[in-house]
Design a protein around this nucleic acid. Structure first.
Lengths: 215, 215
DNA sequence: GCATCATTCAAACGTTTGTTTCAAATGAAT
DNA sequence: ATTCATTTGAAACAAACGTTTGAATGATGC
């Protein structure tokens, strides 16, 4: 039968373990936590790699669909006019932060995914990220046409990095911030990120410094 | 004899491979690239884990020393007065970008280090990052005393994330940006990051939104 | 020349890895 | 009840892993 729950038990366990240990984990740790036989992985998914692909796709596809859907909505409502950067940035940030209503491990797993080494990342980028990213960089470019495209790209990269790190750092937050920062206050967190990124994106093009040596 | 070059051959090869493949790599790949025997790793370093510690420390210690030294200099010159955020942020960002005059793999390795799973990261944070981070968050807090400490922490985290991602993405940059962004233009890159982060840090404290649902 | 030390190397060690095998269990259809 | 395809599970697989061993090598001081 399709949709048997051994499959989802494996997906759930994998996701949870990746969230806190990354992708360098033995299969037997996963099947142990899932309470299934080791062979079940190769039966339901063909290999460990395919399993990881499935784990990533299960969250990445709806996440980026939601981002693009929000951007579609904004652009439809604006009927041709460029959007305010803040709205674009919110459409990019909010879905990632508000992702996991049933626990924080989905966020951490997405964060781990973005931190994969280049070789694995290139496939994930092409399959899940590139299309969405081009939509957003295009919208951002339209919202500030005087900003050179290279700056738009760089600033988008900095946003992505900040977001990833915010997703990734959740488990360490109390230690790092003396308990002052609470990653479970999603709405406030979205506000913080959007404010920071928007200000960063709206800052004037950086002019050449005359003499910079900081040594 | 101390300082024999098998040791540094191993360190160099490890660094290079971590830069492009992350930390999930077999020892024999390292010793192969280094042109030394597998046993040399356990002879010169006690274990694979200790080798990784040494690789990380070799770059992380001087990096964070330089950051703190720059901050010391700024604070000494300001004689008690709070510093402008831009100067603090530049002292944090520039040493990381300008790190590797002999190739880009040092940057990428530092980026990979920051992307380690929580368990490994906690040790590295306590050993290499915490002290430096507290100096910088304190300076940032002094530079904008009206900003709640939680915001200072969050914004510092977003800077760290953006910087890491800028370090990490180097190999993929051409594909992502159609060749428009060149990570080897170090000085310009520092300027971009400092401008973005400074604007983000200087934005007013985020006020509560009345009704936020972005669905 | 000889003893002493650090270093290198090929080989082997015992585990752990992802994957496969095949028999047993399960469940729906006839 | 019997058939048949699907799913499970214990065991085994070869390959790869980090580490250890012990002999060979090379340099240094006497």
């Amino acid at each position: 039968m399709e949709g048997c729950d051994t499959k989802t038990k494996i997906l759930d366990a994998t996701e949870r373990i990746i969230a806190r240990r990354g992708f360098d984990i033995p299969l037997r740790l996963i099947t142990g936590e899932a309470g299934v036989n080791v062979a079940a992985v190769n039966y339901h998914f063909q290999s460990k790699e395919t399993l990881f692909d499935a784990v990533i796709a299960r969250r990445m596809v709806p996440l980026n669909e939601k981002r693009v859907r929000l951007l579609d909505g904004l652009e439809a409502a604006a009927s041709g006019k460029p959007l305010p950067p803040e709205a674009i940035i919110r459409a990019f940030v909010a879905p990632a932060i508000e992702m996991d209503r049933e626990g924080e491990h989905i966020r951490a797993m997405i964060g781990q995914t973005h931190s994969l080494p280049a070789e694995s990342m290139e496939r994930i980028f092409a399959e899940h990220i590139e299309g969405m990213a081009r939509r957003f960089t295009a919208a951002l470019h339209r919202s500030r046409p005087e900003l050179p495209l290279a700056d738009v790209y760089w600033r988008f990269i900095l946003m992505v990095g900040g977001l990833i790190h915010a997703l990734n750092i959740s488990p360490m937050l109390p230690a790092v911030t003396d308990g002052l920062c609470d990653p479970s206050e999603r709405e406030a967190l979205v506000g913080r990120l959007v404010a920071f990124f928007t200000a960063g994106f709206e800052t004037p093009r950086v002019k050449r410094r005359r003499k910079t040596c900081v040594t």
